[in-house]
Design a protein around this nucleic acid. Sequence first.
RNA 1: GGGGUUGUAGCGCAACUGGUUAGAGCACCACACUGUCACUGUGGAGGUCGCGGGUUCGAAUCCCGUCAACCCCGCCA
Length: 587
Amino acid sequence: MNRTHTCNALTSENIGERVILSGWVNSRRDLGGLIFIDLRDREGITQLVINPENASDVADICRPIREEWVLTVCGIVGARPDDMVNKKIGTGKIEVNLEKIAIENKSQPMPYHFNDAQASEDLRLKYRYIEMRKTKLGSYLRLRHDITKHIRDYFDENGFIEVETPILSKSTPEGARDYLVPSRVFPGQFFALPQAPQQYKQILMVGGLERYFQMAHCFRDEDLRADRQPEFTQIDVEMSFITEEDIYELVEGLMTSIFREIKQIDIDTPFPRLSYEEAMFQYGSDKPDTRFKMRLVDLSSVVTHSGFQVFKNAIGDGGKVMAINAKGLNSIASRKTIDEWNDIAKLMKAKGLTYLKIEDDGTIKSPIAKFLTEEEINDITNLTDATSGDIVLIVADAFLTAAQALGRLRTEIAEAHGMIPDNTYNFLWVNKFPLLELDEEAASFIPIHHPFTSPVKADIPLLETNPGGVKAQAYDVVLNGVELGGGSIRIHDAELQQRMFEILNISDTEINSKFGHLLDALGFGAPPHGGLAIGFDRLVMLLTGAPSIRDVIAFPKTTKSSCLLMDSPSQVDGQQLNELALTIQQK
RNA sequence: GGGGUUGUAGCGCAACUGGUUAGAGCACCACACUGUCACUGUGGAGGUCGCGGGUUCGAAUCCCGUCAACCCCGCCA
């Protein structure tokens, strides 16, 4: 028997037809005489009725059937009595009176109750096939497919060519830890799985493809988070003969069309832009959530000569006194709550947090009030726009420390107190990043983005005099406080690229062995080019509202990078190790 | 590498201050039931209290270690 309809297809118009359905037993209600079975496939649910008076042989077969058994059934579509219509399902007006039934497969009792949203994630990961059969996961995977298809169409329509780049690649210094694959043919040598197809896509530009994209699988052997998996998918893009503006336009077009198609939401373009410096000053983050205000305020100028030593010293040491105004939260700012906020500030390496409460009657309460003049207090409340019922949180520290502590507090407080509007999607470009940062341990510069990022043209001479002051032609696209993706205009001049490696303190030998191929390629007529990569799993996570990217990946790994379904990683036998010339060191 | 939360029946949970035979619900098994739709009712079975050690007359409960899942810091060009 081959099915004639899905379990969501039948309506009153089919009444009287003989149909064949296949699916899983969603639930079974045996009334002794009458038996009802809800049959489910990926499209929906249809109620089956077995009446022993009409079909006693079918009823006998049905008695032992349990949840999740797999059936193919044949019967006549009938109308339900008016008062028996089930409004919860699309097929609620009809039912199928069974004439024939085939049990395709039995099932063990379910290991957990999937109606139960509380079931532990261990079980959901181990029994991933059950999870995708009955819960949101199945619909998320379908949505993920829809988005993938839409992306491929978008790039195709814009003249892009999808190229697959190797998974067995080469380990290069810098960046994340590599996953390594031993070579059998070259004992003691290794492939690395790509952290990103970065060099390949630049080389595709040298190859004259001009517009490349790929749904690229990437691997990074670093510790996990709710939004980080060891393997993940990027929408990887590279273009020749373009400027930053072309990238902005391309991504804005992609995002608006995805949101229109998938969510029926119109996103405003162009996306607002903030420089890295503005983002840090206003939000204390390089990926600010702009769905709510509570911006950072620099109080340094009004407390430079403060009697409060902590402020004075912080500024004297070249730091800043920064604040946020938690509007209207004075009433909930108990001792305990302020302690929790203080812990968050310390978590972000700040030495501590102080505050200024504006009581309902307008009086100021603050542990540091006695150190401040009336004028200083007035300046603080004016700058932070603080009025009755507000509490101003203040951190004095090195600028970046103070800003990041308040930036973190800002999002924690907003989340905890419902200050973030639902169904709002705030895109943002963050650009003008510094090119390099000083690695204190190694006492040398390391790239903020990656070593192929082009400096802003005007800053190139600064490379020789003040490398830390050079700005990069790099940009991140941020959505609701999540770093969705980022990219840059690349260096396409071999000499400049060589000089960049030298500034990064990479030895000539290493430049040759690790990057010789790239320098070669740049030397054979590399066009100016640039691109970006967008975290596809994160995008789907935000589009579904899922709390973790695990929820939008078919077979995700745990926070220790193991797979509970396959029980990987696992040991291999000695023969395999021998072939690869590997021995295992006991730790 | 570090901090935190959690771990008791197949599942989600309870078990007071360390004290009788670790409980009820869902699922499972059996029986009954012709309009249910998370069917209902009656009965039954089901436990390495994550694992190992310690304290104690006595440990699910206290202590030490360890494992696993999750969240965060570091890390993630």
